[in-house]
Design a protein around this nucleic acid. Structure first.
Lengths: 258, 258
DNA sequence: TGATAATTAATTGTCGACACTATTACGTGC
DNA sequence: GCACGTAATAGTGTCGACAATTAATTATCA
């Protein structure tokens, strides 16, 4: 539904340009990584995966390059590729940016809202309310994402969507943890109600502030859920400042087990 | 100097991991595109360029994938790659985001400032003042970029830098136009003085507001310089909203001339 | 027994070739 | 002269093979 991104009206019917095999394979591997079926740091052996996808190594190499650009895999020259790992600091960073970017999206969306869009937002919030009673976290998250998607459609800044997607892909693994966080649904629902009200009032500032807050809260929750509490890793720079490679699997071991 | 990004202290001495040939070639082609030596829409024939770089087509294909991720080339399956084109709306978008992202950078940098960093900023502004008297736009721009780089170092949010770079690469072609804009140096110099003062006062808000303004102004100037005035292309959607592919070279013609 | 050096195996880097497709150029009929 | 269909050609899609390099294993020596 949000896949084709043909949000509102039964819009466009682009010629649906054929996607290259590399792109398709990239999307598949991306899902594997994003949805956590592959562990961070896990090696991605070209021949192995090429065979899995039924493509040649050369083509799979393109796949790796694509995913490298999204920071989903790390390519170490002459040593191979591995699933990118995300440490605590990375998640902190991403959530800092995420909250600001969504704030922008919601702010820029507001003046573009029309009655039709407002109705759609209202419908989603209604659904949320319904789902919240059941306590269905998975479905609630889907609705929340639908809401965000629609906002991005309305904001109509293609690159803003790209930036958010770029960051989002790197944290979905962790966002799934959000399911279990106590009070998440209630908070999020309340936030969305506030946002909807702000939308109706044409108050972009307030809408933006509301997402900002809820994302900030979500970020903190996920951080403590995933990495335990404490104000970020102690981060004791060796010489002034050199976090960077602080935490990394010792080295991709050649054989899985032996 | 800003190349190695070893900002302040004579930091780190990472093993300087060897870069793959594809990465290097990608950087070269990137420069060609970014610095405007290749026209937007120009076809990039694999064999041709592979030979130019002394690499094989397969490797150049990786190059194309890398640059595609940065939106510097467009790959149309079964039809080939071409230098990405940027229309007026793209530039508008990019500048909207650019000003917000830099605002963030400057805001987040402020609390991290120490005396050493402040001295460096002071030095750059001094240089700027000097260069401004000569009216050397090129050198002034270099200093301005150095200033930005340093801010990003201090802000210390790796992904913020990435996002800014991502957007920046797509507009350098146009930013060069900024050289010629009347009053640019004076305005920019004044802005940087304000920023420096804000930094010294530890006032991130003010610093952020200052960059925001100067970038907004720069964006507008470049827009009118590059595309003429008028409030964005008329953008008359065919069916609700479908700008997207509005303006694009008719199709990459097979042969250059005939 | 522990450390170091030679050997072996696994995996990446790179290339050249062939198959396939889309675009152009040409030719035929109306 | 124009529309349509057909042949030629440029260029991409894909593959398999070989060379180079790194990491793991074994052998050697103190």
């Amino acid at each position: 539904m949000s896949k084709t991104r043909s949000s509102s009206a039964g819009a466009a019917k682009l010629p649906e340009l054929p996607r290259s095999i590399a792109t398709i394979a990239a999307q598949h591997l991306e899902r594997e990584i994003i949805e956590g079926r592959l562990d961070p740091g896990e090696r991605l052996i070209e021949e192995e995966w090429a065979e899995k996808f039924g493509i040649s190594r050369g083509t799979f190499r393109e796949v790796l390059r694509i995913l490298e650009a999204f920071k989903l895999v790390e390519i170490i020259p002459r040593r191979g590729a591995q699933v990118a790992s995300v440490n605590r600091r990375d998640v902190e960073e991403i959530y800092i940016l995420r909250k600001h970017l969504f704030q922008l999206a919601y702010m820029y969306a507001t003046p573009n809202l029309n009655d039709d869009a407002l109705r759609q937002f209202q419908a989603i919030v209604d659904d949320m309310e319904c789902v919240a009673e059941r306590g269905d976290a998975v479905e609630f998250t889907a609705l929340s994402q639908k809401f965000d998607e629609l906002v991005l459609d309305v904001a109509d800044i293609a690159r803003l969507r790209m930036l958010i997607e770029f960051l989002g892909k790197q944290t979905i693994r962790y966002r799934y943890m959000g399911f279990k966080i106590a009070g998440r649904i209630e908070r999020s629902l309340a936030a969305h109600k506030r946002i909807l009200a702000a939308f109706k009032a044409g108050d972009g500032e307030r809408a933006g502030a509301a997402v900002y807050e809820i994302i900030e809260w979500a970020g903190k929750s996920i951080l403590s859920a995933a990495f335990g509490d404490g104000p970020a890793e102690p981060v004791i720079p060796e010489n002034g400042r050199a976090r960077e490679e602080s935490e990394r699997p010792p080295r991709p071991s050649r054989r899985k087990v032996g």
